[in-house]
Design a protein around this nucleic acid. Structure first.
Lengths: 256, 256
DNA sequence: GTTACTGTTGCGCGATGAGCAACTCCGACT
DNA sequence: AGTCGGAGTTGCTCATCGCGCAACAGTAAC
């Protein structure tokens, strides 16, 4: 009695999940669960036994009913970590976008590129481009430089030694020069990018940290060079750093 | 290839849980998971398909890797008051941490160990250690002693009769002596721990009760012995007990 | 002491889970 | 544009495993 008639379903796993969903609604005994799911109580007994052995279910007291175990909470930690970044990041980006009038993004590192996961557009934004899901090069974007700057040194060197694409005459493609720039990024705590990905585009990014202090994302503001001048980039860095620190705190990171 | 050789194990459920635990550590692809678990990638593909259909796993992007899905968060979040415990406990811990200047934790009992589920660090905290998710021994921590002290007497005796590890020369490992100490803990309503887990570390814990009055967690304050002296431990007990009573009330427990 | 109920476990069987092979799809490379 | 390699999917087959049945143990209520 599967919830889906697809041949690809694994019935016993499907049943085990049904047990978990039932227990999520409230504690229950074996016979009760069997009645709800329409399977034999010995089946439920065995399913619960596995779930219990792996910590996803626990028994309340010696002979009590069963309930969701803390193993599920441990698993959920991985999902809430990611959800938090996207969900908590959106209003932070929107606030900054409203304040600067420019587009604000959050990007994470994935397999050698930066992927935008959050975007908020300011009132003055001329472009309707939706960057979410877009992959951008690490070496030619402000977010990418932040993500590179805080990588372990071996991985950073590996990534910049791969022949780098030149998008404009300003793109830094020399590995040594880029590594030196990344040192500066790490020490000053932000990365600026002037017309390296495309002419007329300026951007600045700051790090977003996870609960252990590791850099999990970069938050950037970008806009046309005639509006987001080099001077203005310097001016908005403190506001962005503060916002990123707030977001990092929400993600569980408290700077000592 | 089950984690347990018991005939009662349901192999496919066991495997599915292994997939979830792997994804809890970080996103992964089908082939990668198959390699880690030592099963065929078609097996993993089907297991992931079921988990995805029930929301416990989700794919990042069109052809991206797989990650823990929010179905797991629903399971965890919709369970018992223990999730409320985490949510409601955080501000209570933070208030105490701000007041004492020390680290304040909430821990629950899980399979013979204490697991920290909430943490707030005070301004004077020197350590950046994140205890959340960490498992600590019951017999050598103040939280653990609280959790032990309010267990049914048979289970308490069983747990202290297991050979106990000695972490410092102060760790109480004699079962009779520990049981006597737990009687005292139950009668005085708090547990103190002086350099039993590690030298230089003092801690004190009080019980947090669920809606039926049962002890569902322990809330503790810990810090270096030079700051959290034996005298100061006694001084902060009433404040902690009051805070724990407030938290217990929020969880539905009203002492008659 | 008896009854009723819950939960566990041995056993046998057939339905299901799993591996194999072949396939599709996509990105990287030339 | 074409080729190659790798990831992931799916049809098929069959042996293993999951499941239901029956019997049992344990416990609470009467």
């Amino acid at each position: 009695m599967s919830n889906s008639d697809s041949a690809a379903q694994v019935q016993s796993v499907d049943r085990a999940i049904s047990v978990l969903e039932l227990l999520a609604q409230g504690e229950a005994g074996i016979t009760e669960i069997a009645g709800e799911l329409g399977v034999h109580k010995s089946t439920v007994s065995r399913l619960v036994s596995v779930l219990e052995s792996r910590g996803l279910v626990e028994q309340l007291g010696e002979r009590g009913k069963y309930a969701i175990g803390f193993g599920v909470v441990r698993l959920a930690g991985a999902a809430t970590g990611r959800m938090d970044l996207t969900k908590l990041g959106q209003p932070v980006c929107q606030t900054l976008a409203d304040s600067f009038g420019e587009t604000v993004n959050i990007a994470v590192h994935d397999a050698g590129v930066a992927i935008n996961i959050t975007q908020a557009r300011g009132s003055a934004a001329v472009s309707a481009v939706n960057w979410i899901g877009q992959r951008t090069p690490l070496h030619a974007t402000s977010s990418g430089k932040i993500l590179l700057a805080y990588l372990p040194v071996e991985e950073r060197k590996r990534l910049v030694s791969i022949p780098l694409d030149s998008y404009t005459e300003n793109t830094v493609v020399d590995p040594d020069r880029l590594l030196a720039e990344l040192e500066t990024v790490a020490s000053q705590g932000y990365a600026a990018c002037f017309e390296e990905l495309e002419l007329g585009l300026h951007a600045v990014a700051v790090p977003v940290r996870g609960h252990r202090g590791e850099v999990v994302a970069a938050m950037s503001a970008s806009g046309p060079s005639y509006r987001l001048s080099r001077e203005r980039v310097e001016q908005i860095v403190p506001t962005m750093s503060a916002a990123a620190a707030d977001l990092s705190a929400q993600l569980g990171y408290f700077a000592g």
